[in-house]
Design a protein around this nucleic acid. Structure first.
Length: 572
DNA sequence: GCCGTTTTCGGCCCGACTGTTTTCAGTCG
């Protein structure tokens, strides 16, 4: 028995192995598409299988439906088992090496019997690669360099770091007011981590954007330099791609460079259906005729009969279907909608600023309310408050309240204990305005135990806000295991809310799960999880993440005025 | 392997750049 996600994983593996084998790329894509269709489907896999309705999903035909049923019911399928035995296990890793695709991998395997990264490295060092048809000395050298980078694993950036670096690059490249430089790529889509930076530049007159990029202080190596495209690698290993275009092509190029790839593939298919070919230069009629220049991304979508799709939604995760049917949300939450800061720590526990400083900073930002949520007793590692210290904090809070406009709310970030309980007595919890409940310990419980732990906590009457959902730390710690749909069902049943944590290391609940939460009518809180006043700036990342999860203004509790917010989160 | 009021077969997104070619294939985004 495999569940939906496990079946999707198996399909992806088949696709990759077929690709490594040099199979028809469209067939390879079909497996990827099928895996995606399955993941995005709202329905239960057992129901889809038993009623034979798998083929109703777009991208799943007879052959895939058969394999999916087989994988679901028996956990295996002959094709995958055959591929696994026929192909050397190191082959998939070889495909991950930059500059190596299926064709080159196949050629190397054919000519030299290379079936792993280690074997490739040995062959390069021995100078045997240059003798293979289609390979030369330069390629051999490039491969050695690519392998060295591959060993150190590619450098990835947190979204916050990517935006900072991207904004710096924009400032560096733009030399005058009539020049236009935009950050595109996954940073513009606000993905939680970013592998490389994409920029688009244009100017009405002559401007040496490429020269400026190669002269960027952090640039270490020029990877490619052509007429319109320049690629450099920074000392940190991060790659920067720059496209330089004519001003009239800027909008189309920006759209192209923003991606995602999946969104573009679907959009170009749609354009084709409408009699156009879509490229980075805009639209062109399929039956010849001059290219149609678009002045903005809005115009590009409009010419295809679609409303504007914001970059955060361009993931081929149903946004095109929604756009076609008029179901695309038009009131995605924006930063200016947020009226209160939720989830803030002070020096009472592990914050670096005093309660007074936090209050003053929130005031200065024009916030209507601020919830002070220091850690609870069992969070020894973070200076969690005892009941006595919590009560003492309320006194200080009352005193500080006299000197600030922002409404201060009493709260806690309570640990969810191993048993699925909160660690203040109910009598104390009931006197609080806001309770954020989070897992901080025992991340390695198995999926069933963790699911029970969370469900039990959510069934407590005082449970209101689920903090930094699965406790991941981006690029550092994987999220813990739990059955998310079951947990969200429990949260919905308890009329609780979920946090979108804006700490750049967290950015949870993840977008795909936010959409599951929305289906269940679960409201969200956009939080900063601030341990300093500077961290109030994390709000933008919470907003970005929420938008990626299609969260609308009306679902956000801290977009409500203070009184309505307090009513909505009060422990009952 | 999927898909179809233009098709049940022949398509499937499009272009830049590089290296090894002597007109283009492979890879990438």
């Amino acid at each position: 028995m495999l569940d939906k996600l496990a079946v999707a994983r198996a399909l992806r593996e088949i696709g990759l192995l077929l690709q490594a084998q040099g199979e028809n790329p469209f067939k390879v894509r079909a497996y990827e598409t099928g895996a995606r269709a399955l993941e995005d489907s709202q329905e239960d896999l057992p129901a889809l299988v038993s009623s034979g309705r798998l083929t109703e999903l777009r991208g799943i035909g007879e052959a895939l439906a058969k394999k999916i049923s087989e994988l679901h019911l028996t956990g295996r399928t002959a094709l995958l088992e055959r591929l696994r035995t026929e192909l050397p296990p190191g082959l998939l890793e070889l495909l991950q090496v930059p500059d190596l695709g299926p064709k080159k991998v196949a050629a190397l395997r054919e000519a030299l019997g290379v079936g792993s990264v280690a074997e490739l490295e040995a062959a390069c060092r021995a100078g045997r690669v240059r003798g293979v048809k289609g390979f030369g000395e330069k390629t051999e050298q490039r491969l050695l360099e690519a392998l060295a980078r591959f060993r150190g694993r590619e450098a990835r950036l947190l979204l916050s770091d990517a935006l900072e670096l991207g904004e710096r690059l924009v400032r560096h490249l733009r030399a005058g007011p009539d020049e236009r430089v935009d950050l595109a790529g996954s940073a513009r889509r606000r993905k939680e981590t970013v592998g490389d930076l994409d920029l688009v530049a244009s100017a009405p007159g002559p401007a040496d954007f490429a020269g400026r990029l190669t002269a960027f202080p952090l640039a270490a190596e020029v990877v490619a330099r052509g007429e319109t495209k320049t690629v450099v690698r920074l000392a940190s290993g991060v790659q920067v791609d720059l496209r330089v275009v004519a001003p009239e092509d800027h909008a189309a190029a920006l759209h192209h460079a923003t991606g995602s790839k999946g969104h573009h593939v679907r959009l170009r298919g749609l354009a084709r259906d409408r009699g156009y070919s879509l490229s980075e230069y805009g639209l062109a009629a399929l039956d010849g005729g001059a290219p149609i220049r678009v002045a903005s991304e809005e115009e590009l979508y409009a010419r295809l009969g679609l409303p504007f799709i914001p970059p955060e939604l361009r993931e081929d995760a149903g946004e095109l279907e929604a756009a076609l049917s008029g179901a695309l949300p038009t009131d995605l939450v924006r930063q200016e909608d947020v009226r209160g800061l939720v989830h803030c720590h002070t020096r009472w526990s592990d914050g670096r600023a005093t309660l007074e400083e936090m209050a003053a900073a929130a005031d200065a930002l024009g916030m209507e309310y601020l919830t002070i949520t220091d850690h609870s007793p069992s969070a020894h590692y973070a200076g969690g408050l005892t009941v006595d210290r919590l009560r003492a904090q309320w006194d200080e809070l009352a005193r500080v309240q006299e000197s600030v406009r922002v409404k201060l709310l009493r709260g806690t970030e309570s640990d969810i204990t191993e048993d699925g309980l909160l660690d203040f007595p109910d009598a104390v919890l009931e006197q609080l305005d806001v309770i954020v409940a989070s897992v901080h310990t025992r991340f390695k419980m198995d999926e069933a135990a963790m699911t029970r732990r969370l469900r039990r906590a959510m069934e407590l009457p005082v449970f209101k806000i689920w903090g930094h959902a699965r406790g991941r730390l981006l690029l550092e710690r994987e999220p813990f295991e739990c059955r998310m749909e079951e947990v969200l069902d429990a949260l919905a049943g308890a009329r609780g809310a979920v946090e979108v944590n804006g700490d750049p290391h967290r950015l949870e609940l993840e977008p795909r799960f936010l959409r599951l939460a929305t289906e269940r009518g679960i409201p969200v809180v956009l939080s900063v999880d601030a341990h300093s006043t500077a961290a109030f700036g994390y709000l933008r990342f919470a907003v970005d993440t929420a938008r990626r999860g299609w969260i609308r203004r009306g679902q956000v509790l801290n977009a409500l005025p203070a009184e309505a917010f307090a009513r909505a989160v009060r422990p009952a």
